[in-house]
Write a protein that binds this DNA or RNA. Sequence first.
DNA 1: AAAACATATTGACAGCTTTCTATTTATATG
DNA 2: CATATAAATAGAAAGCTGTCAATATGTTTT
Lengths: 101, 101
Amino acid sequence: MELTNKQITVIFKALCDENRVQIVRLLQNGEKCACRLLEALQCTQPTLSHHMKILCDSGLVVGRKEGKWMYYSISAEGTDIAVQCLRELTKVSESSGCCCK
Amino acid sequence: MELTNKQITVIFKALCDENRVQIVRLLQNGEKCACRLLEALQCTQPTLSHHMKILCDSGLVVGRKEGKWMYYSISAEGTDIAVQCLRELTKVSESSGCCCK
DNA sequence: AAAACATATTGACAGCTTTCTATTTATATG
DNA sequence: CATATAAATAGAAAGCTGTCAATATGTTTT
């Protein structure tokens, strides 16, 4: 998995905003309709729509349209990529000196 | 480990900027002096200092002062917290319906 | 076809981020 | 002690982000 610096920022930008973190928490209970999220979120519908776009762009969340409703859920694949990305990015190479370099 | 939404945003804000992602990559090879990072980074010294502050605030990076030099490295503890935080945040509860809710 | 509803898009504005130059603080050296 | 060096801070400018009101798009129902 080779991600550019730019792609990495897109993933983690999703979690840079308190409202979006809250949305992810709400989705931990399973797939939710946008209107349900809106009820829980003290913001307007366009603002929610904006946040959902950023979450979907990051890959952490996926949307599914059903009639006039939009259902969102946490993406297992997307979150696996994010976790692996974070692990690899913060992994210190074995040949690197400890604190005594 | 109970982090607030705000604390979570502070962690991931560190990785929302391409320059900071690049800095973390540079630190994968081990502890580095600020002046070394500056050489590799096409930005001014105050800008680097600003980014290092955000990285340290996130806990992903730690700084160590030695004389007039400042040495930075990836924090094993901080990155473990970040990975665990990301895992927990994106974990879907077992009782949640699949796609058929 | 018209009305109602759910969501997305547009455009505007306030506030935050990134970046720079200039300056300050702290440390080492002649 | 004066000078040089490394890093942090202050202040300002440009650009990005989050937010809203208004509007558009798409879907269902009457």
